[in-house]
C-alpha cells in the first residue's frame, strides 16, 4: 500500500509537470488513467475510466484566461478510488469531478499567491544578473502553485478507498445508475463549449456534416477526420480564390477571444 501510494504520488507529480514538459497534454485523464491503472494492476479499467473522464472534461483546457478544474487530482483520485473499490467507470466521474473543482479553488486561493512570491524572486534574480537563482525560482514557482494537489493526491489515495467503498454502498442504486447516464450526457457540455468557441456562420454546416455522417453512415470519428482533411485539401486546391481578400479570418480570431470572456 505504501509503495502504491508512492507510485500514485509520482503519477501526480508527472501530471503537474505538464507545463514543465512542453504542455504536451500529459495531464489529460486519457493519459493519467492508464498510468493509474498500471500502478493498481488494472490497466484495462484505467484506460476506459481515463477515456470516460476525458470526454466529460473535454472542455477543460486552459486557453486565454479560463482556469479549468484541476484535472490531475480529479483524474488520479477519481480513477484510483474507482478501481480500488471495483466500481463502474462512471464512478470515476462521481468521485473525480468534485475533487477537480475543489482543488482548482484551493489552488487559486493559496497556490497562485505563493507562486507570485517566487515570480517576484525571479525579478530580483534578474536584477542581480543571477541566472541560477532565476532558474531555481522559476522551477519552484511552477510546482508551488499546485501544492494542494501534490499533497492531497497521496493522502486521499492512502486513507480514502475504504471510506469511499462504504459511501458507494450507501448511495442508492438509481443515483449510481444516474451517474452512468450522466457519463453519456456530460460530453455534450464539452462539445458545446468547443463548438461555441469555433462557431460562426461559415462553419456551421460542417458541424452538421460531421454529425450526420456518423448518424447515417456510421463512419467513426477518425473516418470523419480523414474525410475532413481530404475535403479541406480539395477545397484549397480547386476552389480557393487567393485573389479574393479574406477579412473573415480575422473576425473569427476576435470571436474566439470573446468566447472565453464568458467563463
Amino acid at each position: 500500500m505504501i509503495l502504491k501510494t508512492f507510485l500514485i504520488f509520482l503519477v501526480g507529480l508527472l501530471g503537474y509537470s505538464e507545463w514543465l514538459l512542453g504542455t504536451s497534454y500529459l495531464q489529460r485523464p486519457i493519459i493519467l488513467g492508464p498510468l493509474v491503472g498500471l500502478v493498481l494492476g488494472d490497466l484495462q479499467n484505467g484506460i476506459i475510466m481515463g477515456a470516460t473522464l476525458e470526454l466529460a472534461m473535454i472542455g477543460a483546457v486552459s486557453v486565454g484566461a479560463y482556469d479549468p478544474p484541476d484535472l490531475v487530482s480529479g483524474s488520479i483520485i477519481g480513477i484510483s478510488l474507482a478501481i480500488e473499490t471495483h466500481a463502474a467507470p462512471a464512478a470515476a466521474l462521481t468521485l473525480g469531478i468534485p475533487i477537480a473543482a475543489i482543488m482548482q479553488a484551493l489552488g487559486l486561493a493559496t497556490g497562485q499567491p505563493l507562486m507570485l512570491a517566487f515570480i517576484h524572486r525571479c525579478d530580483n534574480a534578474a536584477e542581480k544578473g543571477n541566472t541560477r537563482a532565476l532558474t531555481r525560482n522559476m522551477l519552484i514557482a511552477g510546482y508551488i502553485q499546485d501544492w494542494p494537489g501534490i499533497v492531497f493526491i497521496p493522502l486521499a489515495f492512502y486513507f480514502g478507498s475504504s471510506t469511499v467503498a462504504k459511501l458507494l454502498n450507501i448511495i442508492p442504486a438509481f443515483i449510481q445508475e444516474g451517474m452512468n447516464v450522466a457519463a453519456g450526457l456530460l460530453p455534450l457540455l464539452g462539445f458545446a463549449m468547443l463548438a461555441q468557441m469555433m462557431m460562426n456562420k461559415k462553419v456551421v454546416p460542417f458541424f452538421f456534416l460531421g454529425f450526420f455522417l456518423v448518424a447515417y453512415a456510421g463512419i467513426s470519428t477518425t473516418g470523419v477526420a480523414i474525410f475532413a482533411v481530404i475535403m479541406a485539401a480539395i477545397m484549397y486546391v480547386f476552389f480557393d480564390n487567393s485573389k479574393e481578400t479574406e477579412n473573415t479570418g480575422k473576425n473569427e480570431v476576435v470571436q474566439e477571444g470573446d468566447g472565453f470572456d464568458e467563463f
Partner: peptide
C-alpha cells in the same frame, strides 16, 4: 499573403466536422 486567414479557415472547418462527428459518436442518450 493571407496564409494566416486560410489556415484559420480550413482548420476551423476540419475542427467543426470532427466536433459534429464526436457529438454523435460519443454522446449516449437512450
Amino acid at each position: 499573403s493571407g496564409v494566416m486567414d486560410k489556415i484559420t479557415k480550413y482548420a476551423s472547418m476540419i475542427g467543426m466536422m470532427v466536433v459534429g462527428a464526436m457529438t454523435q459518436e460519443m454522446v449516449n442518450v437512450k
